[in-house]
Design a binder for these strands. Structure first.
Length: 174
RNA sequence: GGAGCGGACCAGAUGAUCGCUGGCCAUGAUCGAUGGGUGCCGAAAGGCAGCGCAGAGAUUUUGGCGGGAGGAAAGUCCGGGCUCCGUAGAACGCAAUGGUGGGUAACCCCCACCGGCCGCAAGGCUAGGGAAAGUGCCACAGAAAGCAAACCGCCAACAGGGUUUUCCCUGUUGGUAAGGGUGAAACGGUGAGGUAAGAGCUCACCAGCAGGCCGGGCGACCGGUCUGGCUCGGUAAACCCCAUUGGGAGCAAGGCCAAGCAGGAAGAAGUUUGCCCUUUCGGGGGCCGCGCGAAGCGGUUCGUUUCGCAUCCAACUUCCGGGUCGGCUGCUGGAGGCGUCGGGCAACCGGCGUCCUAGAGAAAUGGUCAUCGCCCAGCGGGCCCUUGGGACCACUGGGAGACAAAACCCGGCUUACCGGUUCGCUCCAGUC
RNA sequence: CGGGGCGUAGCUCAGCCUGGUAGAGCGCUACGUUCGGGACGUAGAGGUCGCACGUUCGAAUCGUGUCGCCCCGA
């Protein structure tokens, strides 16, 4: 196991639309104080599943679980766990961890425990029956949506998801 | 030694290692405004193709250097800076404040003092203007709750009765606020005079009120003295009155890029639509026109209204399309910290010197390990000393490590909090 | 950032504006009724009015502070 692992901002979900995309895929697994949502990553150009791209994660800790200090403590603990377990997670996916309740595990044993829990949940949700098919149909629908420009009024299609699948802008001025 | 009062300060330390974030420097990669030069078209202006020569800058890789939460960053309770909104002028309303003087950019803040209350004291608390402008309220109890009033009682007269001298009982009328009892609160207190009985009815002293004068103080107020009428309840954190203050919105403010000196549609020349009636001159009603319309009928920040002044009129307004859930900026050097000197009782102010000390944006300042440090208990060691205690050192075991995380920036207030350091002072006990 | 509302019996709520007695429904307990239960009838218990300080003779009510919860707008 690789102990030294970078964790730059490109490995995190940075904007609300990315969080919404994962939540609206509606695939989750829960265990203990955590709920983990998963969503396969897409290649922007082709709309197919990109199994090679690195894993990205996001953390959601609402005010329900405590004050700012408790929320920050959870986020740091989970970021550290992701950093350590990064190579053991199934590639080509975005994950969002929601903290439900509970005290923050402390010490080395607590850190190991959170780490193992995240890996187990991630493997459980991606190995579930229908995960790959759903990802494929989703990808296919996205390609068809990308072909016909700006028919966004489909209620099944989240607007930010189609925006994510939009073809890159052609170069201007050349 | 014990108990207590007031103030100031700290918010575990060091090291190793793995990370995050933004700054600077170097470096590789990708993109690249613009410039240069080449070819073609053209009379020219210029256009097109294309070279990859220079290159601001953007994104990113790797490496190095140095920086990275608080005393409350919190609650968002006040006050300001800053930004935008024609001007924020007047009136009404609304809201806030409420002893005096000062500090301050400002304050529901701070300092000093005055009055009141609490404490043996050091000290603490204090929404502390006006109740003889007006209105309201004061449950229950009580005769009566605010300006007078007679339930019991007391006294007098008259009538009747008992006895028939005094006296007693009943009733009616009148006088009386000294006594009773109720209540949170009952119309000054004590004494003397006075009276049929009583009463500030009169007098002395005291308390209190109002006014005048003298002295001290910038002032709140304090001290003294004289006069007056004799006493006039409480509540304004009830309405209210008085004085003072307050324009509104908020960094999601605001500006720039995207964005092309700008695509489409509708509205829109109305100086308060026009006419008639009525009016307390504020306005109200009817009819016509525009409008789908009971709305509305110039606009100009704002969730109080009206008025005044100013200004704008298509270069305007609204909607749709386009764009967008983005990027850059505002964004941290400031009523700034520390030291020192001077002024001031103090809050604070001024001069000089010196320092630079967080800028995130699904939101950084962390994880792990080791050592030291803190508290408690036990055992051991020597020391102080009056039996019995005290502090110190070493070891072992156990425990605590709180509250709470910047979000434009400051000054305060309030609240939360494991503990620790230190200064000054008060009371009590003991010894010399 | 700005604005609004609510904490009262085990539960859902009145009472607060205009201060003096805390109340309703459901639930709970006991008894009656019934063969038994439900329903019904009678009686009863149960509340620091979120907390603290103040104003007042007197506070659930008025004022200030504070704690918790909910909602709305940008």
């Amino acid at each position: 196991m690789v102990t030294s692992q970078r964790f730059p901002s490109s490995a995190r979900l940075n904007r609300p639309s990315e969080f919404a995309r994962v939540f609206e895929f509606h695939r989750s697994a829960s265990g203990g104080p955590l709920v983990l949502y998963a969503c396969p990553r897409m290649l922007r150009s082709s709309g197919t599943i990109d199994a090679e791209s690195p894993v990205r994660i996001g953390i959601s800790a609402s005010r329900r679980i405590g004050n700012a200090v408790v929320r920050n403590r959870w986020k740091r603990r989970l970021r550290e766990a992701f950093r350590m377990a990064w190579s053991r997670l199934p590639a080509g996916n975005d994950f969002v961890v929601v903290v439900r309740a509970g005290r923050v595990p402390s010490g080395a044993a607590g850190a190991r425990q959170v780490e193992d829990m995240i890996v187990a949940l991630a493997n459980r949700v991606t190995a579930r029956v229908g995960y790959a098919e759903a990802a494929k149909t989703e990808a296919a629908r996205r390609v068809s949506l990308g072909a016909q420009p700006e028919s966004e009024r489909n209620p099944l299609a989240p607007p930010h998801a189609s925006a994510k699948a939009r073809l890159p802008k052609p170069k201007r001025r050349k």
